[in-house]
């Protein structure tokens, strides 16, 4: 997005007027949003609402990595995709909708699988990382990479009727391993495929993540640092749980045992 020293185009003034009016945002805040670069993992249930709202907000560059293709069973919750894009790579299906929503935003579609070998190269040019993945190996990989690369991370998860959101600021607050040091054994926690998920739930959790990201960009308000927000949809209950930084954390503690990414995250232990 071009600002010519703080000047917006007439269309941009109209498009972002409800942001500009806010005392916490204004033209300066909108310019900060426009110069932000975020890296999103997953174009699924969480990634769709996250990227939809961040694109609407005018975030300068959004990279989305996902190696999957759109399946009919995704459409109950993955709102960027449609009946017409079944079979298409998710990142391409998402990119088309996001480009149509806001041509100011540069969308980088990466059809690839995130690995310990490629993640640090991917995230190094981005300000904030957002995890919208649906599995534990990726969640631990992303956490470790963000701690090692010192990148703020918004992490979200959903299952059945319950969702979780947290914001990790390496060096300041907790990380995912402070909360859950090791991955649960395979099969212990059901996946969305096995457990099901009510379609609106990732919309709620994803939009909470998008809000956290915008606050990080603007430097306004309090983010979910040292805090896990748990949403129980059946009881309509939001609960905040305090998560102190663990000084013995294997990746962000005082004497970390994980000082480089593990060679594989597929096993439930670190096989560095």
């Amino acid at each position: 997005m071009e600002f010519n020293g703080g000047q917006f185009t007439d269309d941009q003034i109209i498009r972002y007027s409800r942001h500009i009016i806010l005392p916490e945002v204004g033209g300066k805040g909108q310019a900060m949003i426009a110069s932000a670069k975020v890296f999103l993992i997953g174009a699924g249930g969480l990634g769709c609402p996250i990227s939809y709202y961040l694109t609407a907000a005018g975030v300068g560059r959004i990279a989305i990595v996902d190696d999957d293709v759109v399946d009919l069973s995704n459409l109950q919750r993955q709102i960027l995709h449609s009946t017409k894009t079944v079979g298409m790579p998710k990142v391409e299906s998402a990119k088309a909708v996001l480009n149509a929503l806001n041509p100011d935003v540069e969308i980088i579609a990466i059809k690839d699988r995130l690995t310990p070998q490629n993640i640090l190269g991917f995230i190094k040019d981005y300000d904030i990382v957002i995890d919208g993945s649906d599995n534990f190996p990726t969640r631990y990989l992303v956490n470790d990479a963000c701690v090692l690369a010192n990148k703020p991370l918004s992490s979200g998860a959903v299952l059945r009727f319950e969702g979780q959101v947290t914001t990790i600021i390496p060096g300041e607050g907790h990380c995912y391993r402070c909360l859950f040091e090791e991955m649960p054994p395979e099969g212990l926690v059901p996946s969305c495929q096995e457990g099901g998920v009510l379609g609106v739930l990732p919309g709620i959790i994803g939009t909470l993540q998008a809000m956290e990201v915008l606050k990080l960009i603007l430097g306004k308000g309090d983010v979910l640092k040292n805090t896990l927000l748990i949403y129980d949809a059946l009881r309509t209950n939001f609960r905040k749980v305090r998560v102190p930084k663990n000084l013995d954390c294997p990746v962000c503690g005082e004497n970390p045992t994980i000082t480089a990414l593990c060679s594989s995250y597929e096993a439930n232990y670190c096989s560095a």
Binding site: G6, F8, I13, I14, S17, R18, I20, I21, G26, G27
Partner: peptide, 10 residues
């Protein structure tokens, strides 16, 4: 409105 205020604020 609201562009009167938006322009003034910018």
């Amino acid at each position: 409105c609201p562009y009167t205020f938006v322009r003034s604020k910018l």
